[in-house]
Computed example of a mutant assay.
Amino acid sequence: MDLFGSSTFKALERGLDGSQLRQKAISQNIANVDTPYYKAKNVTFKQTLSEAMNQPTLQANRTNDKHVEFSKSTNTPLVQTNRNTMYNHNQNNVDIDFEMAELAKNQIYYNALIDRMNGRFTSLQTVIRGGN
């Protein structure tokens, strides 16, 4: 029995991975706010996550109904560099106000995922203890 293999746990895990990657990109942007020619990075994982969740499972020829269905899981968060803009005289395009807002938004998103994950673990703990 795979307690942590449900689609909810997998979605939460992928969301946390994406949030961690976004945190890293935002931190790099903030650290390089005054670096000449530095171009801001952005992580797109919410779209990737929703696409992964909405993808149908891969149909395979199963010879027995008890065989497990295959699924596609090739989607990964994408780190993109925005090279089309320039905010500073040194060719740098990091907007510190935008980055700080994105940092706060990512922190709220991460905390929401952690709260949801804790709720799932609490539910499992209640079941294991027999409802007490």
Rank of each mutant, 00 (worst) to 15 (best):
119 G>Q: 13
66 K>V: 13
8 T>M: 14
25 A>K: 01
20 Q>D: 10
105 K>Y: 12
14 R>S: 14
7 S>C: 04
74 T>C: 02
16 L>Q: 10
16 L>W: 10
121 F>Y: 14
10 K>N: 04
93 N>S: 03
97 D>A: 09
35 T>A: 03
9 F>G: 05
122 T>A: 13
123 S>T: 14
36 P>C: 09
58 L>R: 06
68 V>K: 06
88 N>G: 04
55 Q>M: 03
66 K>I: 13
82 N>Y: 03
56 P>C: 03
91 Q>E: 12
122 T>C: 05
69 E>C: 03
24 K>E: 15
112 A>T: 12
41 K>C: 01
72 K>L: 05
114 I>E: 02
12 L>D: 06
95 D>E: 05
53 M>W: 01
93 N>V: 07
103 L>N: 01
100 M>K: 06
97 D>H: 03
14 R>M: 15
58 L>D: 06
89 H>L: 15
51 E>A: 13
71 S>R: 07
37 Y>V: 04
32 N>I: 03
50 S>M: 15
115 D>A: 12
90 N>G: 08
52 A>C: 10
77 P>E: 11
112 A>Q: 11
110 Y>R: 04
31 A>W: 02
85 T>E: 07
99 E>Q: 02
46 K>Q: 12
112 A>M: 07
119 G>T: 12
82 N>P: 08
86 M>L: 10
22 R>C: 11
7 S>V: 12
97 D>T: 02
70 F>S: 11
75 N>F: 08
22 R>P: 01
43 V>A: 12
110 Y>N: 06
31 A>Q: 08
45 F>E: 12
88 N>V: 05
113 L>I: 09
99 E>S: 01
31 A>Y: 05
37 Y>D: 14
120 R>K: 15
111 N>H: 14
32 N>K: 10
51 E>H: 05
124 L>N: 12
60 A>F: 03
91 Q>N: 15
120 R>A: 07
69 E>T: 06
71 S>W: 00
118 N>Q: 13
95 D>T: 03
7 S>R: 05
63 T>L: 13
132 N>C: 02
3 L>G: 09
56 P>I: 02
35 T>Q: 02
21 L>N: 05
26 I>S: 04
130 G>I: 12
119 G>C: 13
21 L>Q: 12
113 L>T: 04
28 Q>T: 08
102 E>S: 06
73 S>P: 00
47 Q>G: 11
69 E>N: 09
105 K>W: 09
18 G>I: 00
96 I>S: 01
20 Q>T: 13
91 Q>K: 13
84 N>A: 15
106 N>R: 10
106 N>F: 04
112 A>P: 12
46 K>N: 15
11 A>C: 07
81 T>V: 13
19 S>G: 12
41 K>E: 11
85 T>N: 09
65 D>V: 09
20 Q>E: 11
66 K>N: 14
122 T>R: 15
57 T>F: 00
109 Y>Q: 07
42 N>H: 14
65 D>L: 02
7 S>Y: 01
